[in-house]
Design a binder for these strands. Structure first.
Lengths: 341, 341
DNA sequence: CTGAAAGCGCTAACAT
DNA sequence: ATGTTAGCGCTTTCAG
């Protein structure tokens, strides 16, 4: 009497097979397996459901989607998978996507040209119902492609004129960084960030500057470059070569922070005795020498929220910009101390 | 006389539209756009191609794939996207996938239960033509699912009884690590690795032990745990609490190595003066204090090769196990020195 | 309550 | 050289 589950490998049987076995029409089977069989005689309903279980029926996604004109897939465009910041965002997005019944198509794109190509591939072949864009879209090529696009899209961790976005409160992070350094007694501060194309960098800097100004500090020094470990490394080197050195530095993100720590070590600059550093948080920031005092930002929540918004757009809701309302949180570790005497 | 490219958003026109505009049958259009129009009058061919360009025709992937019974998509199952080791593998796989004309569906799965679910989702709904498995598949549930699977699959960076695999030469890495430490003069060595379920750890250890033995060294101490930064941190702590401390340590991977460096710092153990560490390489290993001497392994090549194999299997070729034949390479940095006196 | 029919967009014999 | 036909597996009116 043991029911033999999984007697057939899943996904091999079709509606037609079930229909034939039960002796009904495929349309009836379809009805039962979709709306649960409202307006179908209980007896036939049960026969159909039983047979479906017996053969381990799974709908053929392609066929179904062709018919109902949706794919059940979401796409995400991102610049660098090995960058833990994006990885965390993608993770949040993927979890939520699964929750909402989508599978996730990811494309890592080196530059705007490849972005446009990957974009067109996914969108124009109609492989996805919606797209999450985690890359900077500035080239005319890319902007045109996106603007003419029939599929909903949302930018994540980037603001854009050509679409709605999900971001975190970067200004607040900047303010918190400044507050932390100022309260530790620092007055000569600096910011390591990116070239202007990264709007997150602009906002973090703005918040940082705002609080510095409010505290009556002199203008801060800003140095820009690639927002990578190497970039942070080089940037701090430059900063340490200035005639008058800062005693406190806000590093755009965790990677930049890690690079800065490494540069300090090479220059024989002790942290936090000679230099204090605050940056954004991530797993890696715990294992530097010393561990970095950092600001936690809800990256995976941002990714998840992007999917929620996208899903809403797909179902026809008016899109809107959203800023995740989880405030940035300071994680005190060992990279901030009082300024040197 | 300027041709108005992109006059229509891509992906909106169908074969039928083109057929109607040109005044031919859809099958003719299909023929032209596929086999390039062999056995079609040049005049009609040109008319069709022109019209297709004009309306910016792109085939509807779903419809096409339903018909030809393939999806043009590959899946990848991996345990942790924020782990740079997997990220690098995925990157290689994605590049190659694009090259070969596939899109990539990625699923991050926390444990074997979710693995099985994600697996069934992708495979039984027929969303993919092949699957790359970068997770450990040991549960009966998962093994059954995979074994009964109609889609080709290949394990990457893991050997398995239930499928072919693409791996790197882990034993060689182990041997190189031992050689490096031994040549620096060390005689008391240890290995930080994982619980037995990770076969890569077993192989690296085997290679390491082999070379130690050949050099006539006493048996090495092995300590196992999670192969993460935290795991490496804890493991080195334990190692340093042993009555007789090792002077040279081989850390399973970069994350473990980073954790170990952090633990050494906390314990006041200097690297490389008091303790030498060699680990596997990755971007992060450059920015530790001190930078880690490490063994480069061709992760992205492994990912790429997995796609090549999978593609071959999809096209009916007999699958086979492959070991990437790029030998491991030592990157000398600053974490290895002579043993303390 | 159930079945027949049409069609999503495309390809692939087979006719002509 | 081109068109006709059939159908991939599914959903969805519309009749009965």
């Amino acid at each position: 009497m043991t029911q033999k589950l999984r007697s057939t490998p899943p996904g091999r049987a079709t509606l037609k097979d079930i229909a034939r076995a039960v002796g009904v029409d495929v349309s009836t089977v379809s009805k039962v397996l979709n709306d649960g069989g409202i307006s179908v005689r209980e007896q036939t309903r049960k026969a159909i459901v039983d047979e479906a279980n017996r053969v381990n029926y799974r709908p053929h996604a392609l066929a179904r989607n062709l018919r109902i004109q949706r794919t059940g897939a979401l796409g995400i465009l991102l610049p660098d998978l090995t960058n833990p910041i994006y990885a965390a965002t993608v993770r949040g997005a993927m979890r939520q996507a699964e929750e909402a019944g989508y599978v996730m198509l990811v494309a890592e794109v080196a530059d705007e040209r490849t972005s446009a190509a990957a974009y067109l591939r996914l969108v124009s072949e109609r492989r996805i119902d919606g797209l999450i864009i985690a890359v900077t879209a500035q080239s005319k090529e890319m902007i045109d492609a996106i603007k003419s696009s029939p599929v909903p899209h949302v930018f994540v961790n980037r603001r854009s004129k050509i679409g709605r976005s999900v971001t975190v409160d970067d200004q607040a992070s900047g303010r918190l960084a400044a507050k932390t350094l100022i309260e530790a007694g620092h007055t000569r501060l600096a910011f390591i960030g990116s070239e202007p194309e990264l709007d997150t960098s602009q906002r973090r800097r703005a918040g940082f500057v705002e609080t510095c100004k409010a505290a009556g500090l002199p203008p801060i020094k800003t140095v820009v470059g690639p927002v990578s470990r190497r970039g942070g490394f080089d940037a701090l080197h430059r900063l340490l070569s200035e005639p008058v050195r800062p005693t406190g530095v806000f590093a755009f993100n965790m990677l930049v922070g890690i690079g800065a720590v490494a540069a300090a070590r090479v220059r024989g600059v002790r942290i936090p005795e000679d230099l204090s550093i605050v940056t954004l948080d991530g797993e890696d920031a715990i294992f530097t020498a010393p561990p970095l005092t950092a600001i936690a930002t809800p990256l995976s929540e941002m990714g998840a929220r992007a999917v929620v918004e996208l899903d809403a757009m797909i179902h026809g809701r008016e899109p809107q910009d959203v800023v995740i309302d989880i405030p940035p949180q300071l994680i005190v570790r060992e990279s901030v101390g009082p300024p040197p005497a």
